[in-house]
């Protein structure tokens, strides 16, 4: 600040012609217009929509009541089970592939890269059909252990592993090289240093993206629909669809959707919290 006297400072600021509409006023005007448009749209929706019909189709309590308790004990439980088993397979496989990507043995790196490219480049649905239909056709007599549960865990796991491998690799590479060196100078083998020093630190970095992956898997578990599941192995989407056609009503789909949101929205919130906390810790 090189101000000499307040008067000398203030004078030039006051000068200059005033524009017809100051920028601040114009912004207020535009904002007001937006509220008006919104209010009009809502009013139109409220007056034009047939609320009776909407409620009948989407929120018919008698239909919704029919969904219990199977909605929770079968459908949601299966969705969670599919998701977690796929996540488990994906995590283990992803860690292996990430370590292969970082291997000093070149062919391991190539194999890992090819795997990642293939499984990130294919639609998850294709993998499901391959596991559910292709494998039994190609190798008759072989059965994936665990029936549908095994198939889903494998299909979801194969896809998830490709994404998780890249996340885990980035996490491992984010751990400063000095950590590994310090561990090695204490006499730790490479494997022990990775297990006890590097990977635990990498996992702290990648918890948010892995949680995100969990959300994606939760939604992808709906692809079980295409595996021809039985009554006991239905998950939310299949359950909702079946009941919707049975009752000729949309309510089951609506309720199934709510169940997904019940899980995905808090998880998404958790991811943002974790990310914020991580950003602060840096």
């Amino acid at each position: 600040m090189t101000t000499q006297t307040p008067a000398a400072d203030a004078a030039p600021a006051e000068a200059g012609p005033r524009p017809a509409l100051s920028p601040r006023r114009r912004r207020r005007l535009v904002q007001g217009a937006q509220y008006v448009i919104l209010a009009a749209a809502v009013a139109a929706l409220v007056s034009l929509a047939d609320w009776q019909q909407l409620q009948h189709q989407f929120l018919q309590l008698s239909v919704a009541r029919r969904m219990f308790p199977d909605l929770l004990t079968v459908a949601l439980a299966n969705t969670v089970l599919y998701t977690l088993s796929g996540f488990g397979v994906g995590l283990v496989l992803g860690l292996v592939i990430a370590l292969m990507r970082l291997s000093s043995v070149a062919p391991y790196r190539w194999i890992a890269s090819v795997y990642i490219e293939i499984f990130r480049g294919l639609p998850a649905l294709l993998i499901f059909i391959f596991i559910g239909v292709g494998v039994p056709l190609a190798f008759p007599g072989t059965a994936i252990p665990g029936g549908v549960y095994g198939q889903v865990a494998l299909a979801l796991g194969l896809v998830a592993a490709a994404y998780m491998a890249e996340t885990i690799r980035a996490g491992i590479q984010a751990v400063p090289r000095g950590q590994l060196e310090a561990a090695r100078t204490l006499g730790m083998s490479h494997g022990l240093a990775m297990r006890s020093i590097v990977i635990p630190q990498a996992f702290r970095v990648i918890v948010p993206p892995l949680t995100n992956e969990l959300v994606l898997l939760f939604k992808d578990s709906s692809l079980v629909l295409f595996l021809g599941v039985s009554l006991e192995t239905r998950e939310l989407t299949k359950f909702g669809r079946d009941l919707a056609s049975e009752t000729a009503n949309t309510t089951p789909i609506f309720v199934a959707g709510l169940c997904y949101l019940l899980i995905t929205v808090p998880l998404g919130y958790l991811v943002r919290r974790l990310e914020a906390r991580h950003a602060k810790a840096r």
Binding site: P176, Q179, E181, A182, A183, P200, Q201
Partner: peptide, 12 residues
Amino acid sequence: GMVFQQFNLFPH
């Protein structure tokens, strides 16, 4: 034993 410029303690 080795001591580094950047300490390299295990932060976790």
